[in-house]
Design a protein around this nucleic acid. Sequence first.
RNA 1: GGAGGGUUGGCUGAGUGGUUGAAAGCGGCGGUCUUGAAAACCGCAGUAGGGGCAACCCUACCGGGGGUUCGAAUCCCUCACCCUCCGCCA
Length: 426
Amino acid sequence: MLDLRYIRENPQIVRKAIRDKQMPEALEKLDQLLVVDEEYRLLRQDLEAMQAQRNAASKKIGELKRRNEDAGELMEQMGELAGQVKRSEEKARALEAQLEELQLEIPNLPHESVPYGESEFENVVAAEHGEVVQKSFTPRPHWELATERGWIDFDAGVKITGSGFPVFRGAGARLMRALQTLFLDRARERGFVEIIPPLLVNEESARATGQLPDKEGQMYRVEDGFYLIPTSEVSVTNLHRDEILAQEELPLRYASLTPCFRREAGSHGRDVRGINRVHQFDKVELVVMCQPEESYDFLEEMTEMAEGLLSDLNLRHRRLLMCTGDMGFTQAKKYDLEVWSPGQDRWLEVSSVSNITDFQSRRLQTRFRPGGVNGRGKTELVHTLNGSALALPRTFAALLETHQREDGSVELPAVLRPYFGSDLLE
RNA sequence: GGAGGGUUGGCUGAGUGGUUGAAAGCGGCGGUCUUGAAAACCGCAGUAGGGGCAACCCUACCGGGGGUUCGAAUCCCUCACCCUCCGCCA
């Protein structure tokens, strides 16, 4: 969430950000927020004056009683005030709750380097790597190869759970594991600490990272009120909720491999085939918490890490700078990495790297203090970033389609061979 | 699932319904001493909101919410979480 004072003092900037992000519903919330805020502040002034009066009188009553003098009259007066204070406090609490709910509906501000655009069609291709590999045959989509060879069993998944829950088996499962280990090792080499977090989170965690209220429908909710994580960003970013960190501890770098669960309500046409869009998939996620002035450097670094993996896998890929209209609710700047899928003749998103600035940490109350945990400096909010390196199924799909041979086997890139234990997936 | 005990500042840990925003210790910062450092000694210091040019003043916060009271960290209710024991499961 944004700083309330900032919103109050810069409503025109916030309004522009909302329009640029194409989130008109939030304009209404902003207007309500400004009204409620004004009302709340007036009430607070009143309330605090009454509280001050009450506190002073109570102190005096205490003194009188200690000297065994009569305090009856004062106590009677305060009895009336107490009722007023209570009513005011009730009202203040109600307004405060309303204020907070509205505040959660206001999206993060886009960074000045983010291009304006209304939809995904206005994203900017920032870089493109790798050539289209010409083959003597027409590449087939991954679902044909994988089904034929028994690497993925879609029907079994439908039977066990439903569509969107593929079963990886045999060499297919082993290739997934090889990719996972490769990704985690690379992250570790870059100083990222590996985390295995809970896959279920409570409501507070989901709110802190901005999944709630923005993306409630995307998450599976289970009994006891927990949510299945749609990305390990949620668990890992919450590691340091309500903590004041020492400046020397920053930056914190985390990497975690987890399943991600997405309800993805609604059908997305050509996305439904194969493993382009599934309800459960694995992803290695990077999370960074750093000082504000470093965050845009980390955005580049994390994106380059993910690009490096795609290059090493000999996959054609490109980097998109997301325009204002296609960025998410919490993001200030975001890159998507897409990998070329020759069997489907289209780009697939395999990574999304975002700078959330202080939008999550304000809710998380993850702060640092210049000069150490007990130093004298004023606490400051950390910046949080997250990015996939990488999402597994689509990488798997691109790998099959890019490196397939005419007979339906797949020649694996050199970097994967030690992990997979063979040159060929067959 | 049953019974009991807890939740206090960066950490450990006191706390009688009335100058307790909260003892003490550790850790932190500043200083004295020292060639320098350590030790010792002295001093400073919670988080946030509001007001004032300023010294400073006001308000809230002792897990969350509610209640009793002129006044609650302290009493009552409720929820969450943690610990111990029993049961169950692995």
